[in-house]
Nucleic acid binder design. Structure first.
Length: 703
DNA sequence: GTTAGGG
DNA sequence: CCCTAAC
């Protein structure tokens, strides 16, 4: 029996979309699957990412940020697993040690906040630290002290904000709704004083709570975690009493508005950027990615001399390729999205946790447990973030996450327990993937980790609604690490072969606020255009290529088969082959330069020779197929025919559109004469191309 | 493998 | 962008 169940992992209300009944047509099913894949942006991934990063850091003591003592470690373990080994093997991305490339800030962080290393803090700077452990609602917090584990049960969530010294300030965790308990516990265990990490063990049934994650940022925080800070004066936007929109609060989401309060630097203008924290590891990965992009970046002059488009997205390449863009659609099933209203008070001084009941009315207006709008878009449902302005901090409230689509197939005779296990395994597999964090601002991906939030523009409150995060699969080519590299599960509970779906399958888009539609749009676009356009190679039509020859990331999508093993491990449980689910390519809007190149090529070659067009002008743009070019031309023609007001996306110069119309008209007239020079006989020979009529030489364009 | 079109 | 019929 294929359950195709809506798996509500309790991670803030995610529910996998229902699968079409088997009776439905294959096509429909396929489409559905595709859509489902697109929706695989889930909170869970973020969690996985955070957890993974955390572990990674732990795994790589060499990392600059990892200077803390051995005992001061935080681990993320699953229930039933050994406190230590399982989590490591399970969650750490052994393959990479990017941490070595951590930004200077990271290093700095090391010295100042050793205790933080264990926390998957999001963002770091010298001011304060925010460590968060996203957990499902029910966890047991454990602390490892000298190898000994001390449990703190009923810790539903653990989010810690550490101050510059690396210690939690105003520790304020809530345990089961009881504020301070955690704190007490922490103190009891010496957490606060010693900065010992907290180990999280999920309870057996962590499926009900959906604590949102709140990320606090520091205005000075750099994406990369660089230590260099922006002068206070540089903080342009004050945010006193600036109510930061708590998007989509219309629903149950709690709209929390903050008032800026001077923080460390009283003089510093308040920005709506607060204690933003992004995991160091993530930052390092950002950097890594950014560096990759460098290699693929052409100088302006080069580009001008070259022909093909070198994919500006090369750096995103592998990971982005497998990214699953969000689709504009409503998620039919998403429940208990806002069951939990975890809230973290910012100010960089404290451990905050607002339980599901939204205890803090001041900051949380949402009705606990409310989650209507069944028609809300998936992203909206799953990614409730709120940027709050308080002092110079920005609070990101990730209200919920979604679990990527998971298919579980179990025999009817299977026990509920086995079903749970199957689900757990699937979830575990997701956690095991190595993920990267992506930051999307205004629909564009921010790749420069070294930029500060201010420089990036994240500090501008007017852009907050366009800020989003993505969980990107590890770009590492070593897919094997996904499954093979992991050591066997020490715990009998978790099969060694727990599906370790490549994180590639689970991309998460986190958005902070704003209407979902817009965001979705942005998200899709974001993956196509990056903030750092300077890295983009605006392909100069007709020349040579310079592409970095990025490996087609698609291959990363390929999922190592592990079904059999899994089946063996979990009797009665069959996991569908991920490979069966085709990944929709990421949307990559054409740039003006690309459009120009396309127009130029078509002017010369005509509209029936897309392969030639591709070879001529986009040979190195691996992500542009001739079908893409054909499609683009189609849209260009359409665009050129409609009024400017009706056009969307990045505006195409009218001049180009005019050329499109001219070329289109021309080739419509001259297209069919089959000369026999070409396979399809379409188009005219080069010597009679439109370009020739325009006084241009073919040689100038191609070849 | 390409092209052309509908979705 | 995807899917596919038709070449």
């Amino acid at each position: 029996m294929v359950l195709q169940k809506l798996l509500d992992y309790g991670f803030n209300g995610y529910q996998a979309p229902a699968m079409p009944q088997a009776s439905r047509s294959t096509k429909r099913k396929a489409k559905f699957q595709r859509r489902a894949e697109d929706n695989q942006l889930c909170a869970f991934d973020l969690l996985a990412s955070v957890a993974g990063e955390l572990l990674q850091e732990k795994e790589n003591p060499t990392t600059s940020i990892d200077t803390s003592s051995e005992k001061d470690q935080l681990e993320f373990v699953k229930e039933g697993q050994d406190a230590n080994k399982p989590s490591k093997a399970e969650l750490s991305d052994e393959g990479s040690c990017d941490d070595k490339n951590l930004s200077p800030l990271s290093s700095q962080a090391t010295n100042q906040n050793d205790c933080l290393k264990e926390f998957p803090h999001l963002g770091i700077d010298g001011h304060s630290r925010f460590a968060s452990v996203i957990t499902s609602s029910s966890f047991i917090a454990e602390k490892l002290v000298d190898g000994k584990s001390h449990k703190m049960e009923n810790v539903t969530t653990t989010e810690v904000i550490l101050d510059s010294s690396g210690y939690p300030k105003d520790s304020h965790l809530k345990l089961d709704g009881h504020t301070g308990k955690v704190k007490d516990e922490l103190h009891k265990f010496g957490e606060v004083q010693n900065g010992n990490g907290i180990e999280m063990s999920s309870l057996e049934d962590p499926l009900d709570g959906k604590p949102p994650l709140l990320i606090s940022l520091d205005a000075n925080t750099k994406l990369s975690g660089h230590s260099d800070r922006i002068p206070c004066g540089s903080l342009s936007k004050g945010c006193d009493n600036v109510p930061v929109v708590s998007r989509d609060d219309d629903e149950n989401s709690s709209g929390c508005t903050y008032t800026c309060s001077a923080k460390t630097n009283s003089i510093r203008p308040k920005t709506c950027i607060g204690d933003n924290r992004i995991s160091k590891a993530s930052a390092s990965k950002f950097r890594k990615v950014a560096e990759k992009s460098k290699d693929n970046t052409l100088s302006k002059s080069d580009r001008d001399l070259r022909c093909t488009y070198h994919s500006k997205n090369c750096n995103r390449g592998q990971s982005s390729e497998i990214n699953i863009p969000f689709k504009k659609r409503k998620l039919l099933n998403y429940s208990s999205v806002s069951n939990s209203n975890k809230f973290i008070k910012s100010g960089g001084t404290g451990i905050y946790y607002s339980p599901e009941n939204c205890m803090n009315q001041d900051v949380c207006n949402s009705s606990p447990g409310m989650h209507k709008d069944p028609g809300i878009s998936s992203s909206e449902a799953c990614q409730h973030q709120t940027l709050q302005c308080r002092g110079s901090h920005v609070k990101l409230r990730i209200k919920s996450f979604r679990v990527p689509e998971l298919f579980i197939e179990v025999p009817e005779s299977a026990t509920v327990g086995s079903l749970k296990k199957a689900v757990m395994d699937a979830v575990s597999s997701v956690l095991g993937g190595e993920l990267h964090i992506g930051v999307i601002l205004q629909g564009k991906k921010v790749r420069d980790d070294s930029k500060t939030l201010l420089q990036t523009g994240i500090s501008h409150d007017n852009q907050l609604d366009a800020l989003g995060f993505t969980l990107e699969p590890n770009s590492s080519q070593s897919l094997p690490i996904v499954c093979a590299a992991h050591s066997p599960h020490p715990s009998a509970d978790i099969p060694q072969h727990v599906t370790r779906y490549p994180s590639s399958q689970a991309v998460i888009h986190q958005r902070i606020q704003g209407n979902s539609d817009m965001l979705l749009e942005h998200q899709e676009n974001s993956l196509g255009s990056l903030v750092e356009n300077d890295h983009d190679s605006a392909p100069s039509p007709f020349n040579t290529y310079i592409d970095k020859d990025m490996t087609d990331s698609k291959k990363l999508v390929t999922v190592p088969e592990m079904d059999k093993e899994e089946l063996a491990v979990v009797p009665g449980v069959h996991k569908p082959r991920r490979s069966e689910v085709v990944q929709r390519r990421i949307r990559r809007p054409f740039t003006v330069d690309e459009v120009e190149a396309l127009v130029q090529a078509v002017e010369k070659l005509g509209t029936g020779r897309w392969r030639d067009v591709k070879l001529c002008a986009f040979d190195n743009a691996k992500h542009r197929t001739y079908v893409d070019l054909k499609d683009k031309w189609k849209t260009l023609v359409h665009t050129a025919r409609i009024s400017p007001q009706q056009r969307r996306g990045e505006p195409v110069p009218q001049e180009l559109l005019d050329r499109v119309l001219v070329a289109h008209a021309y080739w419509s007239q001259h297209q069919h004469p089959q000369t026999g020079f070409f396979n399809k006989g379409q188009g005219l020979s080069a010597t009679s191309s439109l370009v020739d009529g325009m006084g241009l030489l073919v040689s100038d364009l191609c070849y």
